[in-house]
């Protein structure tokens, strides 16, 4: 089976700065597979998702590499075609359900608008589909929710709506950008189960961006650890949790809070490890410059 999404040698820079913020990132995902992108804040994990979906901030631009979505090179497409391809085949589950819904619009059009405006569905069909989806995300009274405004729903409900909206057009690729970070712990578990459920049912390829290794162990098959916009380690999930190869990955795993060991949990990642991984990233940069 060929990969649905391939990112090859992707580098990006922040305008006005010499250093890259994404450093020759490569990975690929097959249909039905979930890849976790893990790293600390600022490691560039969300940025990869944004680059794929074409929503990088204007101050960041891609300088090299390819993103192949369904076999088509996004960088080489016309902007309008790229937009349509992404809208038809990919979807985003955003981080913060409180800000990701348009406050002045009812829920129904926010689920169905892609179907109607981009994919040319009839309104009544889109409405039936929205009902179906809201059932799939276990919302008991879909009619009422569809007629509501975002401010009338709880955070958990809104995230369900956003998940329903993401899966509306049967996307082949879903990018989940820390979808549970803004939710409280009990809701987190429900939402996580829900995302996994829908991903499995629709056998969607998924990029799961998170800083939480616990979440990765539950949702993903493979993971990539990022530091400074560079992939430090690629691994299958079982292998990783048995023993990560890279020292930084080990340190990251050790930093995960454990209820059984409350004192150890608050130790930050060892400085020596950080220095080593930073040096590694810089060395790779030097090599890249020589190559270029």
């Amino acid at each position: 089976m060929s990969a649905f999404l391939t990112v090859h040698n992707l580098s990006a820079v922040l305008h006005g700065f010499d250093q890259r913020v994404l450093r020759s990132v490569s990975f690929s995902i097959d249909t039905g597979e979930v890849l976790g992108l893990v790293g600390e804040s600022g490691a560039g994990k969300s940025m990869i998702g944004k680059a794929i979906l074409g929503i990088l901030p204007s101050a960041i631009s891609i300088i090299e590499g390819e993103i192949l979505l369904d076999g088509q090179d996004l960088q080489k497409m016309k902007p309008a075609d790229r937009r349509r391809l992404i809208g038809a085949t990919a979807a985003l589950i955003p981080q913060d359900p409180l800000t990701a819904l348009n406050p002045s619009r009812r829920i129904e059009p926010q689920i169905t608008n892609r179907l109607v405006d981009i994919l040319g569905w009839i309104k009544s069909d889109a409405r039936v589909r929205a009902m179906e989806l809201l059932n799939e995300v276990h919302i008991d009274n879909p009619e009422r929710v569809m007629a509501s405004y975002p401010h009338e729903l709880s955070g958990g409900m809104r995230q369900r709506v956003l998940i329903a909206s993401a899966f509306a057009a049967n996307p082949k690729l879903v990018i989940a950008d820390e979808p549970t970070t803004a939710l409280d712990v009990t809701v987190q578990k429900q939402i996580l189960r829900l995302i996994r459920e829908l991903q499995a049912r629709h056998s969607t390829a998924m990029v799961f961006v998170t800083h939480d290794l616990g979440v990765v162990s539950k949702v993903c098959q493979r993971l990539s650890v990022l530091y400074g916009g560079k992939i430090i380690e690629n691994s299958s999930v079982p292998d990783f949790f048995q023993g990560p190869k890279h020292a930084y990955s080990r340190a990251l795993l050790a930093a995960t809070p454990k209820y059984t060991d409350p004192d150890a949990s608050l130790l930050p990642v060892d400085e020596a490890v950080i220095e080593a991984v930073a040096a590694e990233v810089l060395a790779a940069d030097k090599e890249w410059r020589h190559g270029a």
Binding site: G54, I55, R83, I86, A88, L92, P94, N113, D117, L162
Partner: peptide
């Protein structure tokens, strides 16, 4: 941003 990913101009 979300509406951009849906394919809107």
């Amino acid at each position: 941003t979300l509406s951009r990913t849906k394919g809107y101009s």
